[in-house]
Design a protein around this nucleic acid. Structure first.
Length: 277
DNA sequence: GCCCAGGGATGCG
DNA sequence: CGCATCCATGGG
């Protein structure tokens, strides 16, 4: 990928591995706003604006280093797609979502966001997260930051219900009260097994949510989140009915190995966007 | 009214 | 272990 960096701008001159719309609409991030050819993208207390032109993409931000890493710009997606597209399940999905990239988002934001995501839909998830930002995050003028752990510790179960979390309110409350800033910092340096064990100990985090946090918050690309869509896709493509999710997860992780996370996103985006069974 | 959404917790065998 | 049931809420 050809990349130029100028002052507060990252310029991408190769669009076959970067499509901003696909990146924000593939279900890995809940805080963004699309306005024509520009998309505002938020992560913790930072924001960038991604402009898409015919021949290039410009990422405008005060935090160049943060968003360079955030958009995973050092990873060669051409190579990843070439390795995956021999797979008949994936070929059409990769063709459709050719510009998807796995974001390296903030760990704490991912923990909270994906606890909220359980048995929920993306519109409602976005709305709830926006509520939390506006009521507990810092006002940064043109946008709100994602609340810090210390700020969410001020919230009551009722506050979370006000945010529209329903029965997830108690789960998130419990997890927020349990978590410490040290937990978040230390988690990044632990082994994959220790990370999984810790995440599963949190209320509201099960197998699927854990895999989302591993993938989007910790950059572990052999995590394969199996949600209702992937579940349907799998059963459809393999002519099975009601195979349990744990089994599907295990099977697909063995199949795709270190490329599991990428494979999963191409599948999720393609089959969900096209509403295929 | 029913079914579904990027599922998890709990209990029971 | 595997499996069934329940769980808020808004939209189709």
């Amino acid at each position: 990928m050809k990349i130029e960096i100028k002052n507060n701008k990252i310029i991408l001159l190769n669009l076959k591995d970067f499509n901003a719309k696909q990146i924000v609409e593939c279900g890995q991030i809940f805080r963004f706003k699309e306005e024509g050819n520009k998309i505002y993208v938020n992560s913790i207390d930072k924001q960038c604006c991604v402009y898409t032109f015919l021949d290039r993409v410009e990422i405008v931000t005060e935090d160049i280093d943060y968003f360079y890493n955030f958009f995973d710009l050092d990873t060669d997606y051409t190579k990843i797609k070439n390795q995956l597209k021999n797979d008949s399940f994936l070929r059409p999905a990769i063709q459709f979502g050719y510009g998807i990239r796995i974001l390296k988002n903030d760990l704490f934001e991912m923990i909270v966001s994906f606890i909220i995501s359980a048995n929920n839909n993306i519109k409602r998830i976005q709305k709830s997260i926006e509520y939390l930002c506006e009521n507990f995050g810092n006002n940064l003028g043109t946008y709100y930051a994602f609340p810090k752990l210390s700020q969410l510790k001020m919230a009551t179960v009722n506050d979370f219900k006000q945010a529209g979390l329903g029965y997830r309110a108690e789960q998130l409350f419990d997890t927020i009260q349990t978590l410490t800033d040290e937990d978040i910092i230390n988690l990044k340096t632990k082994t994959t097994q220790e990370q999984e064990k810790f995440l599963l100990s949190l209320k509201g985090v099960g197998e699927k949510v854990k895999n989302c946090i591993m993938l989007f918050g910790l950059g572990v690309t052999n995590a394969f989140p199996v949600d209702t869509w992937i579940n349907k896709v799998y059963n459809n493509l393999t002519n099975t009915i009601n195979k349990n999710r744990a089994q599907i997860t295990k099977e697909l992780m063995q199949k795709y190995n270190n490329l599991s996370g990428y494979a999963q996103q191409y599948l999720f985006y393609y089959y969900r966007q096209n509403k295929l069974k």
